[in-house]
Design a protein around this nucleic acid. Structure first.
Length: 754
DNA sequence: AAATACGGCGGC
DNA sequence: CCGCCGTATTTA
């Protein structure tokens, strides 16, 4: 180190809703440690916070406070990763410190809090305590001392442990506790007798500990799979950013293309990042990856404990893994030399984080891929319209898998007109198809995108409907719990026996959910083994896997479920799929509702006929003529997308305009109205100032309604250019001042990131 | 986010 | 003129 007269000054981002970063002085003894990427404890106001060093500052006129401590021996992120964080922060107009906090594993930061302490003389004093900060886990390992006879008086657990240790090189205390019920007393005894020696070292908390994975080899590809793989391989060899849409119908073997592409990337010494939309889908994918690859594989998703996630993160940072599989947050994994990024089921809305730092991992995957000069594969049977359009424009390579593997046919599909049968859950055709399938020993999936028993309760005398006092929605009746629930905020009340408004006994339950369909199926088919899969039956760790295992083992004949059953899983025994009501998602007031309906129905249909027996699909609909439904039923992807594209072009929605939504929320209509006025004012003046051609729609004249007790208003921005929209938003956000009680969220929704 | 500075207003 | 409370500002 060279001696310098001027002290080191660093630029620090703190994880707060602040758009500025802060300069600190570094005491000489800490200077060698305070490099870009490490966390530092800094005085902030009169408390202390964990901040992230994002750079070194040449000089500063002001008198700066010194940092209190350096928290990491080495950087948590590289300068390339920082560049990605900065890009994301700027694009989503979110404070850099919070972006970095989201990117790093949860629970590792420390901060100071004031705590009241009662001292001996009864006086209350304040003490500053540091809280938080997840550390590494250490564990004690025991190994048998070789060539020592076991004493005759050793028996019971102690003897079994000693014998076990002689057959194995060593074992962790935790394993001995689990397998032998070992206690600290046993360990003490064995140590005293000189039979074992103990050593302590750092361990990883492994979410897949003790699971054994079979080994498999690459499958033979069909022609379109081979062609897709060849194009991907050619692109990875080019070592430049190359994005692809892998459009493969359900059952077309997309995963096998991912696996073989990744194998090629690993051979070239690079790494792979695989994103899946939901935690529930990770176990089966991890199983396929662990069976195929011997390299280190890390898993990152919100279902892990903070400790497990921290350890997986450290394994990645230390380059002990070459493949990372995870949900949207895994996009920020500290993986270096990324050769390929796979976004599986890229159309899934769950790639978007909808609070705090509102990013879309599918969009950012393209950005990270571009920065890493990697191949990015967006895979789906029903890609986003914007993705498909970008592929048509040549911005993405288009890889098409139009057929199922092993030449399996697409399921035979029939559309049933449910008009005039409003009270019936099943039309006769569906009932007889279920009976026939049951008799033939096939499994049936029944899809209804609504959980609970009945969607609402209405009084037939006064018309009163049970509603949530916090949210503007009806309460759903759940029979098993004998309560009415709000599906937004979980508010609930016991089921009333009379109308709470007029005491009339003529109260009726209308609309059906999965719970009621399950009941009706049990009545119709008393001998069938019936299961249900929705948020109510899969709560808790492993709940998902429990239900799916029933299907896999063949202990379930008929499974009723919400969209959970539509996603990803591959069940060869399912030969019949019934869509109870195809219309629920069609009437959501969102310009994407047709697209979502087409995707959902296509995905559910895709569950049928994945095994050797052909599949059949019956779809009940009150809107059998709607183009989203007719095209889905006909497996006519191109027809639907062409129709949807021309509709979007006409009304000016993505992919022909970029959208941003500003959502205001507050505790009263008046509050939000005031906020909306302020926002609209600044937006329009900023627009004039920048001579921007961005279109400002709203504030809409009516509130969107109350959600979780807060009223919401929305303003939409439309723009033909992404840069122009961003310029307006950035200037607006810097200039707008909202009443403290009003919160604003900005959602940025692009045509594409390319 | 949390602490502090500011400012308007009722009470004496 | 002081204290109280709600709001705006600052945090390096």
């Amino acid at each position: 180190m060279t001696e310098s007269n001027s002290p080191l000054i660093i630029d620090v981002a703190v994880p707060l809703r602040l758009y500025t970063t802060f300069h600190y002085a570094v005491p000489p003894e800490l200077a060698p440690l305070a490099t870009t990427g490490v966390r530092v404890l800094v005085p902030f106001g009169r408390r202390k916070l964990t901040g992230y060093v994002i750079g070194i500052v040449a000089e500063s006129e002001e008198e700066l406070k010194p940092i209190s401590a350096v928290l990491d021996p080495e950087p948590l992120f590289t300068s390339e990763e920082l560049e990605f964080f900065r890009w994301s922060a700027s694009y989503y107009l979110h404070p850099l410190g919070e972006v970095i906090k989201t990117a790093l594993p949860a629970g590792i930061n420390v901060e100071s809090r004031k705590r009241q302490v009662c001292s001996a003389d009864g006086m209350e004093t304040e003490e500053e305590v540091l809280i938080g900060g997840k550390g590494v886990k250490r564990e004690t390992f025991y190994r048998a001392v070789p060539s020592l006879e076991l004493p005759a008086n050793l028996r019971g657990k102690g003897l079994r442990i000693a014998e076990f240790l002689r057959t194995i090189s060593e074992a962790a205390a935790g394993q001995l506790r689990r397998e032998f019920g070992a206690t600290p007393a046993h360990f003490r005894r064995l140590l005293e007798l000189g039979l074992v020696e103990a050593s302590e070292r750092e361990v990883y908390r492994d979410p897949f500990r003790e699971e054994v994975f079979a080994h498999d080899t690459p499958l033979v590809l069909n022609d379109s799979q081979s062609e897709a793989l060849e194009r991907i391989i050619a692109a990875t060899d080019g070592r430049a950013f190359a994005p692809f849409l892998l459009h493969g119908v359900t059952g077309s073997g997309k995963t096998e293309v991912y696996l073989q592409s990744i194998a090629h990337v690993l051979d070239a010494g690079k790494t792979a990042l695989v994103l899946v939309p939901e935690i529930a889908l990770t176990p089966q994918l991890v199983k396929r990856f662990k069976s195929r690859f011997t390299c280190g594989i890390a898993v990152l998703h919100s279902g892990l404990s903070d400790g497990e996630r921290y350890d997986e993160w450290r394994r990645i940072r230390r380059k002990e893994v070459s493949i990372v599989i995870g949900a949207r947050s895994a996009l920020f994994a500290p993986l270096s030399a990324i050769g390929i990024i796979v976004v599986d089921e890229e159309h899934e809305a769950s790639y978007k984080q909808s609070e705090g730092f509102r990013y879309n991992a599918r969009d950012l995957a393209l950005v990270r891929g571009k920065m890493s000069k990697a191949v990015v594969i967006l895979g789906s049977a029903t890609p986003l319209l914007t993705t498909y359009h970008a592929a048509q424009e040549g911005k993405l390579g288009y890889l098409h898998l139009p057929h199922r593997v092993r030449n399996l046919p697409m399921p035979a599909t029939e559309l049933l007109d449910a008009r005039g049968h409003k009270g019936d859950t099943f039309l006769p055709q569906l009932t007889s198809a279920i009976a026939k399938n049951l008799a033939a020993g096939g499994q049936t999936l029944l899809f209804l995108n609504r959980r609970g028993f009945a969607t609402y309760l209405v009084c037939q005398d006064c018309g009163h409907v049970l509603r949530c006092p916090n949210c503007s929605v009806t309460l759903t009746y759940h029979r098993r719990r004998e309560r009415h629930f709000c599906h937004y905020c979980d508010y609930s009340i016991p089921a009333p026996s009379v109308c709470p408004e007029c005491d009339s006994q003529a109260i009726g339950l209308l609309g059906r959910g999965t719970e009621r369909v399950e009941e009706e199926v049990r009545e119709l088919f008393p001998l069938a083994r019936v299961g249900r899969m929705d948020r109510d039956t899969t709560s808790g760790r492993g709940g998902h896997a429990r239900v799916l295992k029933g299907l896999e083992d063949g202990t379930i004949d008929i499974l009723i479920g919400t969209q959970m059953i539509a996603k990803g899983h591959d069940f060869p025994g399912v030969t019949l799929v019934g869509v109870v009501s195809a219309d629920a998602t069609l009437n959501i007031p969102d310009f994407r509702s047709s697209e979502r309906t087409f995707q959902l129905i296509s995905q559910v249909m895709g569950r049928a006929g994945r095994g050797d027996a052909p599949g059949k699909v019956l779809i009940q609909s009150l809107a059998p003529d709607h183009y989203a439904i007719t095209h889905a039923v006909a497996h006519d992807f191109e027809g639907f997308y062409a129709e949807e594209i021309s509709f979007r072009r006409e009304v000016g929605y993505p992919p022909f305009t970029h959208l941003a939504a500003l959502t205001l929320s507050g505790n009263s209509v008046a509050e939000v109205e005031k906020g909306a006025e302020a926002v609209a004012g600044v937006l329009h003046s900023t627009k004039r100032e920048l001579k921007s051609r961005v279109e400002i729609l709203g504030p809409v004249s009516a509130p969107l309604g109350k959600i979780r007790g807060r009223y919401r208003w929305q303003i939409l921005l439309k723009s033909t250019g992404r840069a122009e929209l961003h310029r307006l938003l950035a200037r607006f956000k810097a200039g707008v001042k909202l009443p403290a009680v009003v919160r604003m969220a900005v959602d940025v929704d692009p045509v594409d990131m390319l």
